[in-house]
Every structure is written in C-alpha cells, then in structure tokens.
C-alpha cells in the first residue's frame, strides 16, 4: 500500500513549489489513475516517489507498506518495490539491453539478500516476457533504447516492469507518443501484470489510455493537490468538461 501524506515539494535549485500538501492512498491491488492538466505536478509526483534528486521535500511523507521511502536513494526504493515507467525512457549507448536487464535484476536481488540469477534462468525469463510484448530478440542485443521507436521504448519499459516484479508501478504518461496499436500492446502488457499484491498509479492527460487500462479509482490533480476522487466514470466526465472546473485551464 502506498500512502502519501501532506506532501510539499519544490524544485531543489529554484523557489518554485510544485506539490502543495498532496494526499493520496493506493491500496494493494488497486489501479489508480491521476489525471490533470499540464503543470499540475503529475510528473513531479512520479519522480518524487521514485527518488529523483532534483526536488526538495519540504513536508510530508511517502509510505510504502508503512515504511517512509523519502530517506532512501532511488535504487533502494526500486529494491523495495517501486517502479517508474518513464515518459521518456533514457538512451544508454554502449550498454546492451540484456546486460542492463541482468544488472538491474541482480542488483535488486542482491539488495533483498537473494542469490544472483543463473544465466539460463535469466535468459528464459527475458525471452518469455519479451515474447508476450512482441519484443524481437534483436532489440535485446542492441544498446538500451538507442534507436528504438517511441513504441519500442514503452514496450521495453513494460518488459522491465514484468521482469523486476515491483509491488508499486507508476506509469508516467505511458500513452504519449503511442499509436493505437502500440497503445493496445502496452496496455495488454500492463493488464497482464495486474495482481492482488501489485498496485498501479497511472498518470495521464487523456482518458484514452483508461479505455485500455481500466482504473479502480480516478484522482484529479490541480495545482499540486488531489482535488477530486471518484470511480472510472470521473475520467469520462473530465474528457467532456475539461479541467476548467478545477481552477485551471485545460
């Protein structure tokens, strides 16, 4: 379970406050969507949960299963079960995707006190997960994300999510830059990972993604706060009315 209490965050090197006392709870197995206009603080929220350093937390706490993650570095948060699927996955030239995947899986296992994966087991797991997402073997040999299309990069994010088996998945604008076919493949990949002990926080501008990944709850974010919470019908409502009612232009 993820609980965020009165979170106040500013950009580290600037005076600009982005999150203004945000409260949010995501229960085990829940798929929560956060919708909101540009600049409402959605991406900042995802980065702060994952442990990016460019922000300063002025107040509040983020609890994952009762443990405050704010004191942890990003790698410790990942080992604790947090996974952020990036809006713009980074290119890492010179590092083969397979090498990276193995390093990431083993780093998390090591942090949890588990043995390293044996290579045959690792390859089996990767191949099985890649097949489901329609990721060609050739892509796994290429440098991570280098020369990948927008859709390929997002599929690679979901592949990592499947292999790392996190308990709290954050999807930051995963639908951006995807055509409808790619969107469906990615959404199917996410849906296949839905489980009792795994929660999702799906951040999006548009209702479109939520046709494919149907949320349990929808939160509306405006000016660094959650201003309304409802069921999946709230997303449809927002699509019609826009965000103007929440004090911001769309």
């Amino acid at each position: 379970m993820l609980e965020i209490r009165n979170l106040v965050v500013k950009i580290a090197d600037e005076d600009k406050q982005i999150l203004n006392g945000l409260n949010l709870t995501v229960n085990d197995g829940e798929v929560a969507a956060i919708m909101g206009p540009n600049g409402s603080g959605k991406s900042t929220l995802s980065y702060v949960i994952a442990g990016k350093e460019d922000y300063e937390v002025l107040d509040g706490e983020i609890l994952l299963n009762g443990e405050n993650v704010l004191e942890m570095e990003a790698d410790a948060r990942a080992a604790a079960g947090i996974f952020l699927a990036f809006q713009y996955p980074l290119e890492i030239p010179g590092v083969a995707t397979m090498t990276f995947l193995k390093a990431a899986m083993n780093a998390q296992r090591k942090a949890r006190g588990e043995d390293e994966l044996l290579t045959p087991d690792f390859i089996k797991q990767v191949n099985a997960a890649a097949d489901k997402l329609g990721i060609a073997k050739d892509m796994l040999r290429r440098p991570l994300n280098v020369g990948f299309s927008g859709g390929e990069k997002k599929r690679m994010e979901i592949l990592q999510m499947a292999l790392l088996s996190p308990s709290m998945c954050i999807l930051d604008e995963t639908d951006s830059g995807l055509d409808i076919d790619a969107l469906r493949i990615v959404a199917e990949g996410v849906n296949a990972l839905r489980a009792k002990n795994r929660s999702f926080l799906v951040i999006t501008h548009y209702q479109r993604l939520l046709d494919h990944i149907v949320p349990d709850t929808v939160h509306v974010m405006s000016k660094g706060r959650i201003v309304k919470t409802g069921g999946k019908e709230l997303a449809l409502e927002l699509e019609k009315s826009g965000y103007a009612a929440y004090g911001e232009a769309a």
Partner: peptide, 28 residues
C-alpha cells in the same frame, strides 16, 4: 543526472549506475 536516475530507478546502486553511464560514454 537523467541517465543516472534512470538506472538507479531500476535498482542499480549509484557506483554501478555511474559505471554503466561512463561505459556508455566511452563506448560511443
């Protein structure tokens, strides 16, 4: 810092994440 965060967010401890970023830099 963006590359570093990406790798750390996947669980790589900072020294290992830095090594991969540097390897990528030299690898080009």
């Amino acid at each position: 810092g963006e590359q570093l965060f990406y790798l750390m967010a996947r669980g790589l401890p900072r020294p290992q994440a830095e090594a991969l970023v540097l390897q990528a830099f030299a690898g080009e």
